[in-house]
Design a protein around this nucleic acid. Structure first.
Lengths: 122, 122
DNA sequence: TTCCTGTTATATGGAAAGTGTAACAGTGCA
DNA sequence: TGCACTGTTACACTTTCCATATAACAGGAA
């Protein structure tokens, strides 16, 4: 899986990295049980510091996307707490739906955009 | 409209404030042409600094939700660029949908959550 | 043993967030 | 003409976060 950091972005490197790995899991480019590169290798590949990669991995562990193994490194292992996930989803949707409605997007347009996004996965 | 800051949150005060005002507009608690409190008054009300409120107002102006008037203060004035708004919506959905899919929420469950969120507005 | 894991500790530079005080330039009102 | 109220700008200051750097430690594998 290809990872790339936007050095111009105002998003922190470790946030960009975390999001891309989550995206990779959702797109099935990364599969359950698969190992991610070691913190040192990945850091060198994408041109950032080891600790920054480590921070991304630690957060992914805390959020239940990987398990960290001293020998195998970071292994994809999604802990699916559906109730918690739905509550998070609802909170995040609330904010961005509010923005869309202000900008006069209709509920129907918002639904269609969601369908379009959903169809990009798989 | 009631504004409240969560001092424990890791979200910046000016981001919390911006989001709540956008929420107010979307919920029709704040209407086109209505004035927001002055930066000094609001700052005192919610217990934060004037400059922090000013920062929120400036961002709301930049994002096209208010116009800043030297005499009337911040006035609700939504500049609805639908094309831009839809592109923003799509980008934001992409990230949170990926998270939901990883946590084994189905596309149908995601759609239902969106419908539930949409029904909370108005 | 040697090498590669993640993990931890400590230090540093830079940017952002938040506060504080102060002043300035318009505008409306008495 | 003053006064009070807007947003706006300019500094200074503290604290936190981001990212880097160097170094060391512990555990598993070859």
């Amino acid at each position: 899986m290809l990872v790339r950091i936007d050095f111009e972005s105002d998003e922190a490197f470790y946030i960009q990295l975390r999001n891309q790995i989550i995206m990779g899991i959702a797109m099935s480019e990364l599969r359950e049980g698969e190992s991610l590169p070691s913190v040192r290798d990945l850091a060198e590949d994408i041109g950032i510091n080891m600790h920054t990669v480590n921070k991304a991995y630690s957060i992914l562990k805390q959020e239940g996307y990987v398990r960290l193994d001293r020998r195998r490194g970071a292994v994809i292992a999604v802990d699916a707490n559906k109730l918690l996930a739905e509550e998070e989803l609802r909170m995040q949707l609330k904010t961005i739906v509010a923005r869309a409605l202000c900008k006069e997007l209709s509920p129907e347009e918002i639904r269609l955009t969601l369908d379009s996004v959903l169809s990009d996965f798989r």
